[in-house]
Design a protein around this nucleic acid. Structure first.
Length: 437
RNA sequence: CGGGGUGUAGCGCAGCCUGGUAGCGCAUCUGCUUUGGGAGCAGAGGGCCGGCGGUUCGAAUCCGUCCACCCCGACCA
């Protein structure tokens, strides 16, 4: 992509309303624009990141054995009356009337709709397990939206659902998602720690929040220091095998949110305990027959008798992750994208547009990178070198290749690693090999 | 939903107390000079001063009312 023709409205100044760092950087880097409180437009750069995250989440859901569907944003109130939640949900639910004066709502979640799909089509235990997910925009009319996309009213969420004959089978589904989440967040370049969560009125211990660590996180968390250094994610997973050992090994290492942490009973010695802050990016839970019961989602069991199915739901805040990743990965100059979610892999900077040597060297690299399938953003604008370099740091692409007249006179370009700041001088071909190889 | 705050050019702000017809920096456009970390000089364009109503000869400024947005808290992916 040529920056000269790319819609990237970056800002040197920070908009007044943005307080936290990810929000500031997303605005400054031209990723989003606020439309109203807690509602944002996604501009090209931001949308690229959102799509990358979405795709990683999708691939890992597919790998874990789920199938993608797409449910509507606008739902009928009738289903919610059936589950009993229409009156319970409160003002967070955006209620709408259509032209016939029928009660509709902008879905804050999809248990009712998915259960309706399931109950309509699945009648036999032989069709189990049911494993469906979708990635769709939700709306929750938060009293107080804040933190940019991390706590917007409109947000993109992956929510998966499982339907099983009994608790044991439901737990296997739960474990699949648990492991899929470990892999998903690992691929996104994040350290996400599963922590026991409040399972609400259902009870039981099958509810975990996945929390990424960031100094600016919304809540206080405690964990064993081993979490900071070691990897808990297996390279390859056989989802049809027994996943309980993986889950158990993960949960054996202490981690708890502020609410759950009790210094009196904490099994970790003070010296080994890390106290930090975190951002919730995923939440999985088993809720038994909470929705299948009122909605009548039953299947015939092997003995011919109807069984109400056991359900679980598994959410990932896709749009929230964009902000969360920035909170966890930035510096004073701007964003530092983990490579798997970076909007482009390489920022190619022509420091002196109009200089024949610079132009031809930059264009040559650009063409070869494109041909090799590398995502590259080339700054071909006639701007000051300082503005270009600062802009590149701001948008945080993992690699910068800087082509300037000074280096070019000696046959070299500069390659900078955004994360480490390390700069290496090398020939254009060597840079190419490093990026393609 | 309680408490606090802010709405003036694309962005950041001053002006408001003490009414007299709108200003600064950045950005944008033109020209020249510059060119390795957000350049310099000269010039230009861009505003129903959040909306409505009132007071006044005259309102960005005073009064009333509505709206929007932000921050702290309680609540949540």
């Amino acid at each position: 992509m040529r920056l000269s023709g790319y819609f990237l409205p970056t800002m040197k100044d920070t908009p007044r309303d943005a307080e936290i760092v990810s929000h500031r950087l997303m605005l400054r880097a031209g990723m989003i624009q606020q439309a109203s409180a807690g509602i944002y437009s996604w501009l090209p750069l931001g949308l690229r990141v959102l799509k990358k995250i979405e795709q990683v989440v999708r691939e890992e859901q597919d790998a874990a054995g789920w199938q993608e569907v797409l449910m509507p944003t606008i739902q009928s109130a009738d289903l919610w009356r059936e589950s009993g939640r229409y009156d319970d949900y409160g003002k967070e639910m955006l209620r709408i009337k259509d032209r016939h004066d029928r009660d509709m709502l902008f879905g804050p979640t999809n248990e009712e709709v998915i259960t309706d799909i399931f109950r309509t089509h699945v009648r036999s235990y032989k069709a189990l397990p049911g494993r469906l997910y979708h990635i769709q925009w939700k709306f929750r009319d938060e009293v107080r939206p804040r933190f940019g996309v991390m706590r917007g009213r409109e947000f993109l969420m992956k929510d998966a659902y499982s339907f099983d004959l009994d608790f044991e089978a439901a737990k296997r589904a739960y474990n699949r998602q648990f492991v899929a989440y470990l892999k998903t967040f690992d691929r996104l370049g994040l350290k996400a720690i599963p922590m026991a969560a409040d399972s609400g009125p259902i009870g039981g211990d099958l509810s975990h929040e996945f929390i990424i660590l960031a100094d600016t996180g919304e809540s206080e968390v405690f964990c064993h220091k081993d979490w900071l250094t070691s990897e808990a994610v297996p390279a390859t997973v056989d989802y049809d095998a027994d996943l309980q050992p993986i889950v158990d090994a993960c949960l054996a290492r202490y981690a708890a949110t502020d609410e759950k942490h009790d210094p009196a009973t904490c099994p970790v010695a003070e010296a080994d305990l890390v106290r930090t802050r975190g951002i919730e990016v995923g939440h999985i839970f088993y809720f038994g027959t909470k929705y299948s019961d009122p909605l009548g989602a039953k299947v015939a069991g092997p003995d011919g008798k109807d069984v109400t199915v056991h359900m679980g739901s598994y959410g990932v805040g896709v749009s929230r992750l964009v902000g969360g990743i920035i909170e966890a990965s930035h510096d004073d100059a701007g964003i530092v994208w983990p490579e798997p979610v970076a909007p482009f892999k390489v920022g190619l900077v022509n420091l002196k547009v109009g200089d024949a040597a610079c132009d031809s060297a930059t264009e040559g690299l650009y063409g070869k990178l494109l041909k090799a399938g590398i995502e590259v953003l080339m700054d071909d604008r006639d701007e000051r070198p300082g503005a270009k370099l600062a802009g590149m740091d701001l948008i945080g692409l993992p690699w910068q290749v800087v082509v300037g007249p000074r280096g070019l006179a000696n046959g070299i370009v500069e390659m900078k690693n955004r994360k480490t700041g390390a700069k290496d001088e090398m020939t254009p071909d060597a840079a190419l090999n490093r990026l393609i190889g």
